[in-house]
Amino acid sequence: MFNISYFAPAKLSEALEYLYEHKEAKVLAGGTDLIAKWKKIGHPDMELLDIRNIENFAEISEGKDGLFIGAGAKMAAVQYNSAVNEKFPILAWAASVVGSVQVRNLATIGGNICNAAPSADTVTPLIVYGAEAVIVSKKGERRCLVKDFFTGPGKTVLQSGELLKGFVLPYPEKGSKAAFSKHGRRIGMDLATVGVAVNACVDGGKIKDVKVALGAVGPTPIYVTGLEKFAGAMANEAAAEEIAALAEKQAKPITDVRGTEEYRKDMVYENVRKCLKKAFA
């Protein structure tokens, strides 16, 4: 008979000990992805570490060096949190378009990232906001920029025994403005065919800094590189188009049931252009 061995500790130390002992254990956060996948493959045996009882794992708090969002924070919590809405509006927006209400009441931001699905909605905002993932294990704590968190489809930098604790989002620079776009096939309940987040800091009509991240167009979320050269350029339509073209070049989409490679590339260009236009405005 198939089985699940289930552990839901209240203490972080217990969780880390469990992870250390059970190399194959899966971390259960909201479960919307994990349980659905487990059912799809015939609900085989599984060891589960449920993190929902761990103290502070769902907290969202404003610290000195930035906003901390616990890995166990539900999408709905991120969507409606006032600090997130005020300082990181496109993260709140991205959270609000994850699945459906029911999904957002279960799914967590940590789960969205740890699944390492290239289409995860909240990843691109986290990347362009320069968020750092806080990773804990029995050995201690380390940090990793979200843009460097992913190593392949479904694969992350998390080592055996490590657990994602949450994210630190540095407060945005004055004058920076972010924009987000989720391009799907239908409006309700969809995975992104292309996801785009941009964050631009404009000073006196000139670009000081611009970051672009792409979702669903490669084996991992893509952080568009080579944008440093736009520092000092005019924040106008031409720059937006040039950056969009660059983003399109760096996108490595595949053709699947959700869209063709060609269309996804086109949509990277169009959505990056559109987002930058907003961010530059």
């Binding site: 096939r185 239908r186 409006i187 309700g188 309940m189 969809d190 995975l191 049931v257 959700r258």
Partner: peptide, 16 residues
């Protein structure tokens, strides 16, 4: 069947 589920076989939702 490449899209044997309601995520990828899409029917109209209330939003659409």
């Amino acid at each position: 069947v490449a899209n044997a589920g309601f995520l990828d076989y899409q029917i109209p939702t209330s939003a659409d």
